[in-house]
Computed example of a mutant assay.
Amino acid sequence: MYDGDDEVINKVIAEYPDYKGEKLFWSLKNQEAPFYVKNIEKQQSVSVITYIYKGEEDSFSIPFIDDASVQNAIISAVVASKLGLSAEDIDKRMTQLEPVAMRLEVKVGQHGCTLINDSYNSDINSLDIALDFMNRRPDHRGRRHTLILSDIYQSGQAPEALYKEVSDLARKRGVVKFIGIGPELCKQHDVIQISEKFFFPNVEEFIASEVFASLRDEVILLKGARQFGFDQLTELLVQKVHETTL
């Protein structure tokens, strides 16, 4: 079972023409797919997914609108359909889904900032999920969005292609200020097509900079590989709450 719209997966599968097992895949583009996702309608807090399976058109709703939840729901629906659950049962159970605790931490920052902390790993897929989360999160104060990102390791992509994809994702998700930390990002600074951008070889030099001192009234996504020590940034940027015992 796989995503029929993923070019890499399709390329790998094509390398094994003698495979005799069933190929169950879903697609938003290929109407001939075993599980064709005809439409995804995102409302205020609900997504309605319309699909065609075995020639029958049905739909289900989930109480989420983020891309990761929609993708997970589609995968679950494919499995459930294959196992014989009816479209009615799938819809009934999907509407009962409840949010699970995410690794994304939202904290009140200093100087009018809000911090979204995802500084536990750094890869292109989780970056897109975190950017989508930041972009969809309501902010009635209209603050600008800032991404602080470390080098991404073990992506399997050439650095220039990787960071061009990072740049495209960030722009698509409304990032207007980019702060890159790490030697590779410093080398690829021209690839990042965001007008307000800054680069530092390590966290320590960023903390000592005027760029760090000038962070004000921003929604900041912290996304870094563990070895870059982004916990230092979180500690310095989060608003301290002091308690006094009398």
Rank of each mutant, 00 (worst) to 15 (best):
I192Q: 03
E196A: 09
E210I: 08
V191I: 08
T50Q: 13
A14D: 15
A68T: 07
L85N: 04
V12C: 07
D89A: 05
L222G: 00
Q188K: 09
V37W: 04
V79F: 07
D139M: 09
A208C: 11
D18T: 12
K38R: 15
P63M: 06
G21C: 04
Y153C: 11
Y163C: 03
A158M: 09
A130I: 01
N39W: 09
I192K: 00
G174P: 05
V175R: 02
K54T: 04
S155K: 03
N30V: 03
Q44C: 15
F198H: 15
S86I: 07
M1L: 05
K107M: 14
T95F: 14
E235W: 12
G174C: 07
S61D: 10
K38Y: 12
K11A: 15
S167V: 11
T95L: 15
K172P: 06
S119E: 07
T244V: 12
R141C: 13
V176G: 14
I90E: 03
F178C: 04
Y2F: 05
L215D: 00
A33S: 14
F35N: 01
S155Y: 02
I207N: 02
E204M: 10
F230D: 04
V48C: 13
Q31V: 12
P99W: 07
N121L: 06
Q239F: 11
F25A: 01
H189G: 08
G182V: 00
S195T: 06
S195W: 04
D123R: 06
K54I: 03
P17V: 06
P63H: 05
K197A: 10
Y19G: 02
K240E: 10
S81Q: 06
E98P: 12
D3P: 00
R141M: 14
F133T: 14
D18F: 09
R171W: 08
Q96I: 12
V78S: 00
K177S: 11
I129E: 04
E105H: 06
R143W: 08
W26A: 01
K172T: 10
L233E: 02
L127F: 01
R93K: 14
K38E: 13
T95E: 14
I62H: 05
Y2R: 01
F199I: 07
F133R: 13
V238M: 12
Q43F: 15
K92G: 10
Q71I: 13
N125W: 02
A87S: 11
D66A: 10
R137M: 13
M1G: 05
V12D: 09
V8C: 11
L162A: 10
K11N: 15
R144N: 11
Y2K: 01
S209P: 11
V70S: 08
A68D: 08
F133K: 14
T146D: 04
I179A: 02
I124Q: 06
E204W: 08
F212N: 00
I52V: 15
D58K: 11
R141Q: 15
E184T: 05
V78I: 05
F25W: 09
A68R: 07
N125M: 04
L222V: 01
Q227F: 13
I116C: 06
I192T: 00
